[in-house]
Design a protein around this nucleic acid. Structure first.
Lengths: 212, 212
DNA sequence: GTGCGATGTATCGGTCCGATACATCGTGGT
DNA sequence: ACCACGATGTATCGGACCGATACATCGCAC
């Protein structure tokens, strides 16, 4: 999951570790607390070894800014490679059980702007299926096995059930939205500052549909 | 977390691994999918080594029920020890940052029937604090940094924000309920003799509302 | 002038998951 | 009569991720 997220973020701009973590936290803040350096750095190492990204010590900068006495050491900047972009496209397109779990779904969803519509629909429907099953499990529990559990556990289940119902409704809405063609999609590639023109994979058109 | 959950469940009755997993899944179904054997068995081994539980191969059963031709092999039954109960009491009473995270809070909450009211309140308030902070982070993101994120990511944040708001409301309700006094606590130590009797702890949610 | 929080890189031990292997039992289909 | 299949049951292995920790620099407020 981290691999996917890192590759996705580095496609917008090269970054160093600290920055990456902040962006990661911003983008995934709704689904997980904060990425630990204990996972981030080893993963970066792994990605570098696999050739998906390259790391370069940030130093020169034409040497005219700072007299190099207080040279910024450290500050390793990671850049995605062409193979890395391929890898990302492959990861983002493939769906499976782990795509429908809480974390997996969240990460995939966060990169929906870089996902083609067919895949988006597959993921949304798979997630809905998963949540519906969880919901049924909780309903059964609250129905049949209620007397075996104490009041607090029941309250927890009830709250969980409600969350499932809400999420299913949310997903229905998103699915309907996708099908109807007007998806909330701002293609948004890394060109914000007017540099690094790169073809965002298949950003399904119909851009610019602001939500109320 | 698993340690706490296992100790808590074994306090209700001795069980073997498979059964334990099922009960665990039932009790924690609202917060996590299913406990993997890859965590369960090593944890049981660890608990046994620490002396919190004892394991015994289930076999004899007075030999009058089944002719022993189809002897059930395997079937290791785990029983909590006195030290294990102490350990559980210690774990359930101590609060900290990890108690307020999604999983930690869920597990603690699931055993609120075995937790004293002061601790329950501390946990509920700590959790509320944590969620409020997450909520504020999401609000800031949706306010200030909105233009930096694509529509899908924003939608994810919005959904997460809503979930936070709902949970805070839920927690407020639970806290008010705890404070209002009707919470017998039920220390509930030995469970000598009969299982199956339901010394029902406090009722957290009273009259539930029907949905509009 | 100094303490302190943000920035920054990095490792280590430990928890937990997913895949896998293997064995038994009862049930129902062919 | 046979056997396929799902539930029951125990167990291990590699890998992903976290939490704590260590260390160094920078700018700023007191």
């Amino acid at each position: 999951m981290l691999e996917l997220a890192i590759l996705g973020l580095l496609q917008e701009a090269p970054m160093h570790g600290y920055e990456l973590r902040k962006e990661l936290t911003a983008k995934l803040g709704a689904i997980r607390a904060a990425i630990s350096y204990g996972s981030l750095y080893p993963t970066l190492r792994r990605l570098q070894a696999a050739g998906w990204i390259t790391e370069a010590a940030e130093t020169p900068a034409t040497a005219e800014e700072v007299p190099a006495l207080t040279s910024r050491r450290g500050r390793v900047v990671y850049t995605i490679t062409a193979e890395g972009k391929e890898r990302f496209a492959q990861l983002i397109a493939q769906t499976g059980p782990e795509t429908y779990g809480d974390t997996g779904f969240g990460v995939h969803f966060a990169f929906f702007a870089r996902t083609d519509r067919a895949t988006r629909l597959r993921i949304l429907e798979g997630r809905r299926r998963t949540i519906e099953e969880r919901r049924e499990g909780l309903r059964d529990m609250l129905g049949r096995a209620a007397e075996r559990l104490d009041a607090y556990t029941l309250e927890l289940q009830r709250h969980g059930l409600e969350a499932c119902e809400r999420e299913v409704r949310w997903l229905e809405e998103l699915i309907a939205n996708e099908r109807s063609g007007r998806a909330p999609t701002v293609p948004q590639d890394g060109t914000a500052g007017g540099r690094r023109e790169d073809n965002s994979p298949p950003p399904p058109g119909e851009s610019r549909k602001e939500r109320p």
